[in-house]
């Protein structure tokens, strides 16, 4: 248990960097409809934060802190939000995956030339957040499981 941790320096730097990387990943996900990025890229960045924790603290420690079942549930919630928003398009508007919020006052501002309001894009920010949850949960649980399995194989 103890020998798979790295030194105190690496642990300190990792625990400082972990929230910063997570905030950057949330930024990429939230601004996916305005700047380069989106759900997939931000999710990959967030999963890399979990990978940093695994490298610094060891797989068993991270598994005790954040259960792998929780990560899988997080991923499933993301997929569920995606499908629910898509099906809402049938009832609110016409077809599956309709962007039914465009033109509404809440998220539907159509930006002019040269301005970029955050509350534009219709359902795209919601779908971005859903896919971001999915990718964070999925990739983090895969990295965690692979790390645990390779540790077990050495014994």
């Amino acid at each position: 248990m103890n020998e798979e941790r790295m030194s105190v320096i690496v642990q300190t730097i990792a625990s400082i960097l972990f929230p910063i990387i997570l905030i950057f990943s949330f930024y990429i996900i939230m601004h996916g409809h305005l700047t380069p990025g989106g759900g997939f890229q931000g999710g990959a960045v967030g999963a890399s934060a979990v990978a940093l924790l695994i490298v610094a603290f060891g797989a068993r420690y991270v598994e005790n802190k954040m259960r792998e079942e929780n990560l899988s549930a997080f991923e499933s919630v993301g997929g569920l939000v995606f499908v629910i928003v898509s099906i809402l398009g049938i009832f609110v508007a016409t077809t599956f995956l309709t962007n039914f919020l465009v033109g509404e006052p809440l998220f539907g501002i159509i930006p002019k030339w040269g301005v970029s309001p955050l509350n534009s894009g219709g359902v795209l920010p919601i779908l971005n957040i859903a896919v971001g949850m999915k990718v964070i949960g999925g990739l983090a649980s895969v990295v965690l499981m692979l790390a645990i399995a390779s540790k077990e194989g050495e014994k």
Binding site: G38, F40, G138, M145, L146, A149, S150, G153
Partner: peptide, 20 residues
């Protein structure tokens, strides 16, 4: 390409776990 990259990562994870 964005779609293809994510699918590539998922398939690579499956391949590596099968190799293990």
């Amino acid at each position: 390409t964005l779609t293809s990259i994510v699918i590539g990562v998922a398939v690579l994870a499956l391949i590596l776990s099968l190799a293990i």
